[in-house]
């Protein structure tokens, strides 16, 4: 076993175990912490694959941004300290069975792929990535991705406005607590 394989095994096991932890734990904050480790493991896999920009983007967007918001949301909406929501047996059987079937199908499909040999040439870095998003193809004749980039930008703007609108301070006329009106 080479060093690379050992590294892959460690990272993959960590991600897989954490993903399982997200499913199994009944407390929402614990799920979030497992998800955090899963995201870190996947980010490690990106670095392992040589996609450094994506690894760092995964860290800054998910770990630094999204997960903080998710934990924040989880804390704001639990009904007591260390709230647990257990899952019934029927849920486990149905959900687990469905997922297991799908997993088996996907494994079968992915094992039928012809494995390309791992090439050690570096992946295109931040420069080519940025240029192709701005509509300059890496080599003439290749596709560039200006339109998706613009659509995503507009989408982000829409989301920004929508989130601000949804989260704005609202006046509740039926409120019985006048001092709780800041929500």
């Amino acid at each position: 076993m080479t060093f690379h394989d050992a590294l892959f095994l460690i990272l993959a096991t960590a991600s897989a175990v954490s993903a399982l932890g997200v499913v199994v734990s009944s407390s929402i904050i614990r799920s979030a912490i497992w998800l955090l480790f899963m995201l870190m493991g996947v980010s490690g896999l990106y670095f392992f694959l040589g996609a450094e920009f994506l690894g760092a983007a995964q860290l800054i967007v998910y770990v630094g941004g999204t997960m903080v918001l998710v934990v924040f949301g989880g804390m704001l909406t639990t009904r007591g300290p260390f709230d647990h929501v257990p899952v019934g047996l029927v849920g486990w059987v149905l959900g687990g069975g469905l997922s297991l079937a799908l997993f088996a199908l996907l494994v079968q499909a992915s094992l039928s792929f012809v494995s390309h040999p791992r090439t050690d040439t570096a992946l295109p870095g931040t420069g080519p990535l940025g240029l192709t998003l701005l509509g300059v193809p890496e080599t003439p004749g290749q596709t560039a991705y200006l339109l998706p980039f613009e659509i995503v930008s507009i989408h982000l703007l829409v989301v920004l406005i929508a989130a601000a609108y949804l989260a704005r301070a609202k006046r509740r006329p039926t409120s019985t607590h006048p001092e709780a009106d800041h929500g």
Binding site: E52, F53, L59, V63, V68
Partner: peptide
């Protein structure tokens, strides 16, 4: 090759 970005990303996860 993306040192600045990496440092920022990791420091922002200290909040966790």
């Amino acid at each position: 090759s993306i040192g600045v970005f990496f440092v920022l990303a990791v420091l922002s996860s200290e909040v966790f």
